[in-house]
Design a binder for these strands. Structure first.
Lengths: 110, 110
DNA sequence: CCGTCATTTCAATGAGTAGTGAAATAAATT
DNA sequence: AATTTATTTCACTACTCATTGAAATGACGG
């Protein structure tokens, strides 16, 4: 559990990858083709592929084939698990301490 | 904005640091002394200090002095910002897509 | 089947980072 | 002031990781 979270955080802890992640978050379940991402983010295809592989091994994104392109999409379930991991058991079980902060974060814009 | 988030993710993307972070999350605003953390997590004091410094520069934790010990506590506001960053603008502005997932995550256990 | 498009794999290089022992700082106690 | 306690800073080593060019794989159209 703990290990998975670190792997996911590491996958996101990089400038290019976090941009990829956010682009895929915006795209939602439909996802985006690797080539589209490469062009949109101005990243070399091979570099992008390496980053997608990291995100993929962390299960933060999944890939499917469509014709000759490969479509990547965010794994919302994994994102949800990651957010939960970061905040669960917080404030010694006193919700009122951080409830006001929790209120305006966490997928509220989603 | 983007840069801050990556810095914070990088700070959390490490086994020892994520344990420190979770311990401090559990402790809440009261925080924990560096020494207590070192003993509880079985980390050498100098190693711990380096990790706390990383978390601190990412503004995920703050430090205060109390007697001769230094007390570290989580910065809930920063945590909140980080969670928001990860999920905002998601699913092309179609809340219904990820709302069910959002429901059971994000400071819900808090 | 042959060429082309989309993407990945490989090998190599340079940059950043975790951990350690030893020394330094800082505050309280005697 | 000297000593002990709590923590940080320093210098160093080993390791991991991002990026790049070149070659390889896989799928489609002629």
């Amino acid at each position: 559990m703990d290990d998975v979270a670190v792997r996911r955080l590491a996958a996101l802890a990089q400038g290019t990858r976090v941009k990829i992640f956010k682009a895929l978050m915006r795209a939602g379940p439909d996802g985006l083709a690797a080539g589209v991402l490469a062009e949109r983010l101005e990243v070399a295809p091979n570099t992008l592929s390496a980053h997608l592989s990291v995100l993929s091994e962390a299960d933060l994104v999944s890939a499917r084939r469509e014709g000759r392109m490969r479509i990547y999409a965010v794994e919302l379930e994994a994102v949800s698990q990651l957010l939960s991991f970061l905040v669960d058991d917080c404030c010694q079980g006193n919700p009122e301490v951080c409830a006001p902060i929790a209120a305006r974060s966490a997928m509220s814009g989603c």
